[in-house]
């Protein structure tokens, strides 16, 4: 019993220690961001490997999610004779929810895990320690550019996901199932609000990008410097990102759309 309590206490302590380390780490990253203004090349390189290289999975997934939305939405709406509203259903689902959330989950799996593994391996092979001894702060040189690039790339990826998804819904709804093209677009135009829907979606994806990238770089930097430790850090990145994104999505949705 005492043994069990002690183990619970130790687990609790180590959890809060990690939480504290994570927040101090975030402060150090934020302090390193202004220095990047002088060296935009570092950020651009990371934008390529984090953002551009994630494009394929984002575009393909967005297309299929949009097509499924078109199909399911049509089947439901046609019973009520409201197939004209298919554009609204597809666009609102994507812009408000599926765009930011699914893009963030994919981002965690594709870019977040890669970030954690890369940084963890740099730590395991003493590259970070070597930089410190060369008087180059690895947080400024390695972590901050990756963090900033991730935080910029994620909202853009979510926007691309939504745009491609809308096109997928259009392809199925208008192209295959015969919904009126004019109605599809004009209904969407009339019912999707720039501030209430699009801007809130952008805020969501920005928050997700911030949190997902923070988790990834912290897990990598805090990894136990062995192959086992790096593998655990990578797994934890994906799991924690998914949990954080879904949890935050509920909170943000409640704040944004709660009193409608």
């Amino acid at each position: 019993m005492v043994e069990w309590l002690a183990r619970l206490g130790r687990a609790g302590l180590s959890f809060f220690q990690r939480l504290g380390r994570g927040h101090l780490f975030l402060l150090q990253i934020l302090a390193g961001l202004p220095g990047l203004l002088l060296r935009p090349r570092l950020v651009i390189q990371q934008l390529y490997s984090i953002g551009v290289l994630s494009l394929l999975i984002i575009v393909v997934s967005g297309l299929f999610v949009g097509m499924v939305l078109g199909l399911q939405g049509y089947n439901t709406l046609v019973d009520f004779g409201a197939a004209q509203s298919l554009g609204v259903v597809v666009a609102l689902s994507l812009v408000r929810e599926l765009g930011p959330v699914v893009a963030a989950l994919l981002y965690g799996g594709r870019a977040g895990s890669a970030l954690a593994a890369e940084i963890g391996l740099m730590k395991a092979t003493e590259q970070l320690s070597g930089m410190e001894m060369m008087a180059v702060d690895p947080i400024d040189r390695v972590i901050a550019p990756r963090f900033l690039a991730g935080a910029i790339a994620m909202p853009l990826l979510a926007a691309i996901f939504s745009a491609v998804g809308v096109w997928g819904g259009y392809f199925v709804g208008v192209g295959l199932l015969g919904v009126d093209e004019g109605a599809f677009w004009s209904q969407m135009q009339a019912h999707v609000d720039l501030y209430d829907d699009v801007l809130n979606g952008v805020i969501k994806s920005t928050v997700f990008g911030f949190v997902a990238t923070w988790i990834a770089v912290f897990e990598g930097y805090d990894a136990v410097p062995t192959s086992e430790g790096v593998s655990r850090a990578t797994t934890r990145t994906v799991v924690h990102t998914a949990l954080a994104v879904l949890g935050l999505d509920f909170v943000l949705t409640a704040l944004m759309f709660g009193n409608h």
């Binding site: 092979t125 003493e126 590259q127 320690s129 930089m131 001894m133 060369m134 008087a135 702060d137």
Partner: peptide, 19 residues
């Protein structure tokens, strides 16, 4: 500390080259 480290070199066992 970082200013002092600029005047120190360290050779790691693994080399610690940037891969």
């Amino acid at each position: 500390l970082y200013a002092l480290r600029k005047r120190m070199g360290m050779l790691f066992q693994s080399g610690a080259l940037l891969t």
